[in-house]
Simulated assay, not measured.
Amino acid sequence: MRFTLVVAFFVGLFFYGCASVDTPEQAAKNELLEYTDKASFISEQGSVLVVASYLNPVKYPKKLDEEVFGVAVSPAGASFDSAVLEGVGAASIERTSDEVAKGLGFYLPWASYYIVKAPALEAKSLRLDLGVGGFIAKLDFVKVSRSLYWHR
Rank of each mutant, 00 (worst) to 15 (best):
G17R: 00
F41S: 09
P61R: 09
S47F: 03
W150D: 11
I136E: 05
A137W: 01
V116D: 05
V132Q: 07
S145N: 13
K143T: 09
P57T: 00
F3N: 15
P109H: 00
Y35C: 09
E67I: 11
R152S: 12
W110K: 13
G103D: 14
S147A: 14
F3P: 03
V51M: 04
H151E: 06
N56L: 05
V116A: 10
Q26Y: 05
R2T: 05
K102T: 02
A137M: 08
N30E: 15
K62Q: 13
I136S: 02
V50L: 00
V50I: 07
Y60V: 09
E94N: 07
E66S: 09
A90T: 05
A76V: 01
E25R: 15
I42F: 03
V58S: 10
A52R: 11
K143L: 02
W110F: 13
S43Y: 13
K62W: 09
S20E: 02
V58G: 10
V144G: 07
D129L: 06
L130D: 01
D81W: 02
G12E: 06
A72C: 13
G131Y: 02
Y16Q: 03
P57G: 04
S47P: 14
R146C: 11
V48L: 03
S20P: 08
L121W: 07
V144H: 14
L130Q: 03
V21P: 06
D37Y: 11
I136W: 13
A28M: 14
I93V: 14
G89T: 00
Q26T: 11
A28P: 03
F135P: 01
I42E: 01
F15R: 05
P61Y: 06
G17H: 15
T23Q: 07
E34M: 04
L32D: 08
D98G: 09
G131N: 08
F9Q: 01
T4D: 06
P119A: 14
S47M: 07
Y16F: 15
G17I: 00
E66W: 00
Y114W: 15
E25M: 07
Y149C: 07
F141L: 06
N56W: 11
L126M: 01
V132W: 03
V116E: 01
G17P: 10
A52I: 08
Y16V: 00
V51N: 05
L139E: 01
K143V: 00
V100A: 12
K62H: 02
F141N: 01
G17N: 00
V7C: 12
K62N: 12
S147Q: 01
L33I: 12
A39S: 13
F80W: 01
A111N: 04
F10W: 15
T4K: 10
V73F: 11
P75F: 08
R127A: 12
Y107D: 05
A39K: 05
Y113L: 04
V132A: 10
G17T: 02
I42S: 06
A83R: 14
L85A: 15
A118E: 03
A123K: 12
V7A: 15
Y113E: 04
E34T: 07
V88E: 11
V6Y: 10
P75M: 00
Y60S: 02
L104A: 10
V88F: 07
